[in-house]
């Protein structure tokens, strides 16, 4: 029996100042899946993910999140999703934990400090760092706070744009372990974007390759498929 589709894009296009950033993008993400969106810089990954949150509007096509059709982007659809985008930013004068509780309160979620500290260890963040002002964080620490904030409340779909950007190999490994744990134990569906095929290959079950705003390849990963090779061929061909 086919799994339930939780996110579906139908011919989504985005034009900015006469330039097509996305064109005819269609794919589906099934419930409980780890779906990867692979593409280089300027491929349109971030625009696509911003579009899912209603931060930008599609010029063509539509998408479904759960049973809701977008646009219009509805608060109900965002209640199903948690996100960390490329430019997710926080208040510099507040501590990490204050930022997390502040933004979580906008989702009517009021996590206790202990809960946040507990999850912080899973993104490789020492709990003492949570009590430092956001403006004092390094790039990697900022990234970890962004990822951590999207876990409160724990949504049905987590959309992370380049989650390992700015992280060291140990940090990347921690995040990958967290993705696998949340997916297998809590059934969280993931939509992850990255320009790194070798990192994507380690965790994604299915991958779509976005190049120049178009989906060039979309399939399940098997041990016989080398994502790096496919991606390399697409880059050469186009």
């Amino acid at each position: 029996m086919e799994s339930e589709v939780i996110l579906a894009l139908q011919d989504v296009g985005k034009k900015v100042k006469e330039k097509m950033i996305l064109e005819g993008v269609s794919f589906e993400v099934k419930k409980g899946e780890i779906f990867g969106l692979l593409g280089g810089n300027g491929a349109g990954k971030s625009t696509l993910l911003r579009l899912l949150f209603g931060l930008v509007l599609p010029s063509a096509g539509c998408f479904y999140i759960g049973n809701y059709r977008c646009p219009p982007s509805l608060p109900q659809t965002r209640a199903l999703m948690g996100g960390c985008l490329d430019n997710t930013s926080f208040y510099g004068n507040l501590t990490g934990i204050e930022n997390i509780t502040l933004f979580a309160s906008l989702s009517s979620c009021y996590p206790k400090a202990k809960e946040i500290e507990f999850f912080a260890s899973f993104v490789g963040l020492e709990s003492s760092l949570l009590y430092k002002k956001f403006s004092t964080y390094s790039q990697g620490e900022r990234r970890k706070i962004s990822l951590l904030h999207s876990l409160f409340p724990l949504p049905r779909i987590l959309i992370w744009d380049e989650p390992w950007m700015g992280l060291d190999p140990r940090g990347i490994q921690k995040i990958q372990e967290l993705v696998i744990t949340l997916n297998s134990e809590r059934g969280v569906t993931f939509l992850l974007s990255s320009p790194l095929p070798q990192e994507m290959e380690k965790i994604a079950q299915r991958v779509a390759i976005l190049h120049h705003g178009e989906i060039k390849w979309n399939d399940y990963l098997t041990p016989r498929i080398s994502l790096e090779k496919i991606y390399g061929e697409i880059l050469k061909e186009w």
Partner: peptide
């Protein structure tokens, strides 16, 4: 943008 990731219109 961070606030608008939340279920708010």
């Amino acid at each position: 943008s961070t606030a608008l990731l939340r279920p708010l219109s």
